[in-house]
Each structure stands twice: as C-alpha cells, then as structure tokens.
Design a protein around this nucleic acid. Sequence first.
DNA 1: ATGGCGAATGTAAGCGCTTGCAGTACCCTG
DNA 2: CAGGGTACTGCAAGCGCTTACATTCGCCAT
Lengths: 339, 339
Amino acid sequence: MVSIDEVAREAGVSTATVSRALSGRGNVSEPTRARVEAAAKSLGYVVSASASSLASGRTRNIGVLVPFLDRWFFSTVLSGTATALQRLGYDITLYQLTADPNQRREIFDTFLRRQRVDGVIAISIELGEEETERLVELDLPVIAIGGPNPRLTTLTVDDVAIARLATEHLIALGHRAIAHIGASPEYDLDFHIPTHRRRGFEQALADAGIPARPELYEPADFTIEGGFRAAKQLLGRPGANPSAIVAASDEMAIGAILAARELGYRVPEDLSVAGIDGHELGAFFRLTTVDQFPLRQGERAAGAILAELDSPAAGVRQARADLPFELIVRGSTARLPSP
Amino acid sequence: MVSIDEVAREAGVSTATVSRALSGRGNVSEPTRARVEAAAKSLGYVVSASASSLASGRTRNIGVLVPFLDRWFFSTVLSGTATALQRLGYDITLYQLTADPNQRREIFDTFLRRQRVDGVIAISIELGEEETERLVELDLPVIAIGGPNPRLTTLTVDDVAIARLATEHLIALGHRAIAHIGASPEYDLDFHIPTHRRRGFEQALADAGIPARPELYEPADFTIEGGFRAAKQLLGRPGANPSAIVAASDEMAIGAILAARELGYRVPEDLSVAGIDGHELGAFFRLTTVDQFPLRQGERAAGAILAELDSPAAGVRQARADLPFELIVRGSTARLPSP
DNA sequence: ATGGCGAATGTAAGCGCTTGCAGTACCCTG
DNA sequence: CAGGGTACTGCAAGCGCTTACATTCGCCAT
C-alpha cells in the first residue's frame, strides 16, 4: 500500500502539505496542489480510512439502521439514502435490526459506539426507551424517519392526513359506504401508523357527516395476501356492501383489488379501491393511492444528517410531520354511479 | 470517550493486557481477564474501530456491492448476507452501484481501496474487465454471487438446469405447446441469465423430442407488467395456442397469470404457468416455481468470505455453479387434460 | 540443584494520518 | 523603510490501539 510519505517524497513536499492538498483543508498553492495530486494519482495513493479517522475524528461514514431489508418500503427508503450519501462521498454502514434483544443491544451498546460513524439514520425503527437513550448518548447527529420521537430529530409524514386525503377522495366521488382495511391492534407496533391512518379515515367520514359503521372495518397484516382476505370478508359480509375501500397500505389495496375481481366485482365500476404508500406495483394495478415518496424520504434523511454534520445543532431537535404526500389518482377509483 | 488507558488503570494492568484480554488474542490469566472485563464494562469502554484497525490491519468490516437495493431479489440476498455477517460481529459497508461510470470508478478506485474493509461481496454485479481487475488488485478476499467470473471466487446457480427443471415439470404433466417468456437481448446484461434460462427451456423441449416453435417465445423485462404484456401477446397470437408458459422469472410468471385471468383462462385448468426464482409473492399466487433461495445465497456468500478471511486461499478461486435450487409445485400448473 | 520452558505481563515502537504551531517569504500600509 | 498581515510550508506531536520483544516467575525434567 502506498503511504502518504511516498507521495510527499514524489511531490517534493512534506506529508502535511500532501494531507492539506488532498483533503482541501488549509492553504496550499495551486502549483503545489497540482503536483501533489499528480504524484498521488501516479502512485495510486488513496488515504487510509482508519489512519485518517483516528487522526481527525471524522469517518465519512453514516450508520443506517433498518428493521427489514427485504420489504419494499424500507429498501426503497434505504435506496434513496444510499444514493444521496454516496453522491456526497459518504460510506454507509448498514445495520439490520431484528427483534432479538441481544442482537439489538449489541448494536446499540457496541457497534454504534466504536467511533466508526459520524452520524446515524434510523429508518422506521421502533426504538425502545433505552435504545433512544443510547442514541442520544452517542453525541452524534441522529435522524429518525417515522414515529415522532421527542428526543431525536425526526422526519415524519402525517399519517392521519394521508388517510384522510384518500378517504376524502372517495367521498368526493360520491361514495358513502366506504370500508377500511387497517391493522389488527397487535400489528400496530411501528409508530402506530395503522392507528393514525384509521383515525384519518374516521375523521374524513365524520367531517362529511357519514356515520361510522363497524362492519366496514377489517384488520389485516399489511401484505397483499392479508388485503385479499380482508376484502373477501368485507365483500362477503351480509349487510356491509361497501362501494369503496380504503386500505392502509398499497399492498393490502392490491390484495383487495384481486379479491374483488375474484368475486366478480369490476374495479372501479362496482368497487373503488384506494391505497396508501406509493408502491411500485401501484401503476400496474392502476391503483389510486396517496404516495408518500419513500425514495425521497431517504434522500431527505441523508440531506438532514449532512446538514447537521456541517453545522451541528443547526437542525435543532425537531419532530415535524412535514414529509410530503400526494394523491395519485389512477384507475381503481371512480365516481359512484347514481343509483 | 473512555480509552484503553483508563481501563488499564482501573483494572491495574497494562494496556497491552487489556487489549489481549478484550480481543482474546494472546495469553491472559482468567482472573486478570475477568478483572479487565469488569473494568471495561463499568467504564462503558468500547474499542475504537479506527485505532484498532490502524494498529492491527483488521477492520471487521465487509464491503457489499449491490446493483439495486429496491428490487426483491437483491434486497433478499443482501438481507441474508447482512444477517449472517452481523451475527458474527462484522459490520457491512454498503455500496449501491449504478450504471454511472464515474460513480462506479470512484467506488472501485477509491472507496474500496481505503482499507476500510477486510473483504468484498459482489451481489449479482456485472463487472467490467477493469472493475474485476481492481477487485483482484485489492488483494482481499472477494466473493461474487452470480455470473461466473474466472478471476474471482464465484457462487453461481446453474440457470440452464433451473429452466430445464421448470420445463421438464410441465412436459411431465403432458404439456407440449409450452411457451417461454424470456428477455429481449438488450436486457441480457447480467450474466446472461435470460439466455441461460432460455437455453435450459429449449434443451428440455429438445430432450423430449418437442420441436421448438418460435411463435411460442416472447421477450419481456422481468417485471410483472412485462410478463403481463408478454402473456397477452402469446395468448392472443394466432396459431400459438400454448397450454403452458415457463417464465424466466416469478414476477413475469405472476404477470402472465394475471393476463391469463383477464383473458378468461383459468389457471391452471386452461393454462399452466411456471416461474423461476422463489419470489415472496409466489405463495399468494399459488405459483409453481423453481426456488433458488436468495436468502440462503446471501448467507452462503457471508460464510464463504469469512472462511477465506480465516484461512486465506482456503477457498481457492473457484466458479462452481453449485447453488441449490428446487422445484416448488403449487397450484399454477396442472396435468394437461387429455383432449 | 539447575537449566529450560511456557505462561503471564509489561515496555515501547509503531500503524498512517491530521493539525497546532512556528517559520519564511512576500506584500501592503503608513 | 518599519510594522503588520497573509499565504504557504514544514516540524512534530499526537490520535488510541496492537504486538514484537523483553522480563519475570513458577515448574518440570534432568
């Protein structure tokens, strides 16, 4: 491995100058800089990350925590984060958190404390009291996506408003018998997203003066299959007879569309279905949805952490539910035919 | 930050002993080890990654290269890798490669050469000549998944055999008019997977004495939507009239099932459909497929890299197509009704 | 008894950088 | 022309560990 000394010798300067020339910190005359750069290139010199980190305290590395790697939403957010961070020359160290308390403890107590990262992004992680504490103790910039956490800077989307938007769309189309596929309470771990969305759904109905009908609610597990089963329940339930369904996720909405088709309903003529999330499969199924732009969420988290890195405490701890979302009307919803 | 000196003082030993006690390298008497451990725990000491790496040359960090983060196959393999690596105390540094040559060059020329990783896992990356060269030059253990690369240790699945297995299943069920959804040539970048699968399909037909029929082939782009369109072509083509379809991916197979339903075919009564990959949605669509266990592929890569780390060159460069795969018969294929 | 050996521990020399401090040369002001 | 900057560069002290080598000590074989 080529070291900085060889570059210094080759360029006829001290190692200090090489360091300054290559890192851009401190003043170096243009000709010297060029000479150093040429020497570095010709020798194939690349600074040693550990030596540089040890001496400077900077790592150019961000730790990213995700609960799942192989689920669409999380991998999409991660993708956005990774793209943005890489573009700016940052490495990312990935930690996939499981439910195993030992594994989690190891990550919070050891991995994150090895001075290997300059900051941490937690993507939709339900953090325990202690875990939040550990994160704060790190004394590093931390950005959390999802689930307002009063002790951390958090990027959150207003899930109540999202669900209300989807529901209002259906109401505006003349629907009144609107069903909702949410989550069973035990699924409501992650930031109470299902609960918030259900509340948004109910608010929209209430605002429109439509009485809530318990038989028009059905829980599922946020998967296509779950949505499929829930929709079958809903559509088969005597007296329910919904003309529209708001699902708390696109995957469940797709399941609902599939279920409806199987039962002989035409979507959207006989049944309107709206989802939430902006899933990649939405376009194919012509699904009307409220997109929350997960890719951009990831990019935004990257931007936020870098901003804090640049000017610490610039982004004073905040927890604003201000991530953007937007109703995307496609072909799965239609005006209720006047009877 | 607590340093090793404080632990040494607290335990009443030298820093050398602390290092040895905590890392497990070298001899330390049991009582001393316990004392050191207690001191470290009470002070909340965690070794500094950069200092340790600089001094020892080991980083306990594996670089992982992926082409996409937000596609099912890759994120699933990555998940397997991450789980296995984390369990063994390794960090993973993630690099999402794009097609942008500048970005790729930066990763190969700079990021990977900063001595930040002990080894590299390349997940289904189509590596250029030069990129392979850079990887070899790193002089680190490198494991590639997919696409036999004679210069690297590669984990590969036999795509010809996989496709043959799927096709033979259909032939065994009595089908003769079997269509294939593959990829258009320009999509055949990544290790020629589509080509191999098409070849396997054709071999199976040939072995069974079934003549190839060009009108029973249709290219697509490996997505559900692509499979949907391709199947519509196939099923609408005059004179084609297939009784079964082998799709080169599960996503395309799912698209084909959806297309068939839309055209009024019952699956599997009127049309059998088989896929390849083992996609998570396969169960829901009752898709018969050849599973290639991507999660396990990821774990296996992790195991392989650690094996090489333990005993360099133990895993002499090899490129065996020996990853396991298995026919999973579900409900999308059935015996051809005797006419 | 004695030499030899291995286990346990300490000493101290790095690992390859970054950066505070100091020195030099040059330029501008008054 | 002196005084004071400013820009550039070098010197050298770390950053917080690991580990080769040295030292000590108890124990066993001779």
